[in-house]
């Protein structure tokens, strides 16, 4: 259960948003909407603990995430604007290393399975720098397939993806939600995901 209480965000002198309240229960999807510069990314970074709200509290299972620290991180996967992949490493190395650094070592078979599923079959040994934008995005999203976290925070996960990939991602998200996971995401694309509860959070 993720809860936000009276969250506010200040960038320089400007207040991006304030008094944001929400309660996301297990199996729930929260879509954050708003025009460019309304603070969507800032909000997501706050929710995953990268930055601190100017005011308000974020609670995970009724405890402040600042107090939980690494216990909270163990429950979250964040995929941001930046893909979080190294250009000089191969697709397979990227997935294995990023999982290991996130505290989850995976075998080569597991990694290969995930990469095949996300549509990168035959590209496991290529360095990421030769891939297209959409393919890089897939490498990043492959982490969702191998991680065992319950809260996924996704910043524009569908950017640069083709129709097939969007469908794939939708399937992955729906399965995660069905198993009682939670998803917070921003997207400009219309996507209908079925979930136990769907919330929309509108920023300015």
């Amino acid at each position: 259960m993720l809860q936000g209480i009276n969250l506010a965000c200040v960038r320089g002198d400007r207040e991006l948003f304030k008094d944001i309240n929400f309660l996301l229960e297990s199996g729930g999807l929260m879509q954050v909407r708003g025009p460019n510069g309304s603070g969507k990314t800032s909000l997501l970074r706050m929710l995953c603990g990268l930055s601190h709200p100017a005011a308000g509290d974020i609670l995970w299972e009724d405890q402040n995430i600042r107090a939980l620290d690494s216990d909270f991180f163990a429950a979250v996967t964040y995929i941001g604007h930046l893909s979080g992949t190294k250009d000089d490493l191969t697709v397979l190395e990227n997935l294995q290393i990023s999982s290991a650094l996130a505290g989850m070592e995976i075998s080569t078979e597991q990694a290969n399975d995930a990469l095949h599923y996300i549509g990168l079959k035959g590209r496991e040994a290529l360095p990421v720098k030769v891939l297209s934008q959409g393919q890089r995005r897939r490498v990043a999203l492959a982490r969702l397939l191998v991680c065992k976290t319950s809260l996924w925070i996704l910043d524009e996960p569908l950017v640069a993806l083709d129709v097939m990939a969007v469908k794939l991602v939708r399937g992955v998200l729906e399965e995660h939600l069905q198993q009682g996971g939670m998803v917070v995401m921003t997207t400009h694309q219309e996507i209908d995901i079925s979930a136990a509860s769907i919330m929309e959070l509108q920023l300015a």
């Binding site: 603990g49 990268l50 690494s70 604007h81 930046l82 893909s83 990023s98 650094l101």
Partner: peptide
């Protein structure tokens, strides 16, 4: 490339 961000979010 955003990998540092991921490291900060690591439970380690």
């Amino acid at each position: 490339d955003g990998t540092l961000e991921q490291m900060l979010l690591s439970p380690q």
